[in-house]
Design a protein around this nucleic acid. Structure first.
Length: 114
DNA sequence: CCGATGACAAGCA
DNA sequence: ATGCTTGCCATCG
């Protein structure tokens, strides 16, 4: 599997976020590496910010940083709406951080490699 | 100290 | 000047 095109890269990000199961979450770096882009973790977040968050059918609220911290909660409205969405899915969020993060962490590269 | 991550910023057409 | 794509540096563990 070779590196994806720029357009495919963005598309791959959407697909990966869309294939995130209920009550699961991933990190930017994981997605970036999953699509063969080690250094482009930042762009993943940028694409998300432009993806219209939830109204594009992209569960961006399931995408957090590698620490399980809701770094993008501000992109949802500063009101902790992202946290509520995660908790509504069964994900326990404490202090803007996902509890049992290791348990809710979903590995995208495992799924695409499959 | 070293390695990995990051919801950005700068450059090109 | 705007839009889209690519990449380094600083911070955290």
């Amino acid at each position: 599997m070779s590196k994806l095109d720029k357009e495919d890269f963005t598309e791959a990000v959407y697909e990966i976020v869309r294939m995130i199961p209920y009550g699961r979450a991933t990190s930017y770096g994981a997605i970036a590496k999953a699509i063969s882009y080690p250094n482009m973790s930042r762009m993943v977040g940028r694409v998300m910010g432009e993806c219209d968050s939830v109204k594009s059918s992209i569960p961006a609220h399931r995408v957090v940083n590698s620490s399980g911290i809701l770094s993008a909660k501000e992109a949802f409205g500063n009101s902790g709406e992202m946290q509520k969405l995660l908790e509504a899915e069964g994900v326990i969020v404490v202090n803007d951080r996902i509890k049992n993060w290791k348990s809710v962490f979903w590995n995208p590269m495992k799924e695409i490699n499959l």
